[in-house]
Simulated scan of single mutants.
Amino acid sequence: MPNAMPCPTGQPLDQPVERVDQPVERAGPRPPRRRLPLRRILCLLPLLVVGVWVVRHRSLIGSGARQTLTADPYWLLAAVATTGLGWVAVSFARQGTVLERLPAGRLFATQFAAGAANHLLPSGIGAGAVNIRFMTGCGLPPARSSAALALYVLAEAVTRVGLLLVLFLAFPEALRLGPLVPEAVSGMVVAGVVAGAGALVAGVALLRPVRRILVTFVRTALADARSLHTRPSRALALWGGSLAFPLLQAAGLVAVALALELPVRPAHVVLAYLAATAAAAVVPSPGGIGSVDAALVIALAAAGAPVGSATSAVLAYRFITVWLPLIPGALVLGGLVRSKIV
Rank of each mutant, 00 (worst) to 15 (best):
C138V: 05
G126R: 04
T136R: 09
G137L: 07
S186T: 15
S146T: 15
S123G: 10
A79T: 06
Q111F: 02
P182R: 06
F112C: 05
A170L: 13
Q111G: 06
C138R: 12
G126F: 03
A129Q: 01
T70N: 01
L99F: 01
V130W: 01
W75S: 00
I125Q: 07
L120F: 13
S186K: 06
L120D: 09
R160W: 03
V98R: 01
A78R: 14
V88F: 10
L154S: 14
A127M: 06
F168P: 00
V130M: 13
R160T: 07
P182S: 13
L102N: 10
D72T: 02
N131Y: 03
A116D: 05
T110D: 12
V166H: 04
G124S: 13
L165A: 08
A104L: 15
A148C: 07
E183K: 07
V130Y: 06
L77G: 08
A109R: 12
F171D: 10
Q67Y: 00
A89W: 14
G187D: 05
E183S: 08
A174H: 02
G187H: 05
F171G: 03
T136Q: 10
L151E: 13
P141M: 03
G162S: 15
V189W: 09
L99E: 09
R144M: 11
L99V: 03
A155E: 04
R176T: 14
R144Q: 14
P142M: 05
S123P: 04
G105C: 09
T82G: 05
A148T: 10
A89R: 07
L169V: 02
I132D: 06
L99N: 10
M135F: 14
A113K: 02
L107D: 14
G126E: 12
L175R: 05
A113V: 04
L175D: 02
R101K: 12
G115Q: 02
A143E: 15
T68H: 00
P122R: 03
E183A: 12
V189E: 08
L151R: 04
G128C: 00
T110P: 09
V153P: 13
G105N: 04
L175N: 10
R94H: 13
E100N: 00
G162I: 11
D72V: 06
L175Y: 13
G139K: 07
R160L: 11
V189M: 09
V130K: 00
E100C: 15
P179Y: 01
F134I: 14
S146G: 13
F134N: 09
G187F: 12
L107E: 05
P122M: 10
P141H: 08
V153W: 07
G139W: 01
L177Y: 10
P141I: 02
T159P: 01
L121R: 03
P103C: 07
H119F: 00
F112A: 09
Y152Q: 14
V153H: 06
L177S: 09
A71P: 01
T68C: 01
R176C: 14
I125Y: 11
Y74M: 03
A148P: 08
Q95R: 10
S186P: 00
E183Q: 06
W75L: 04
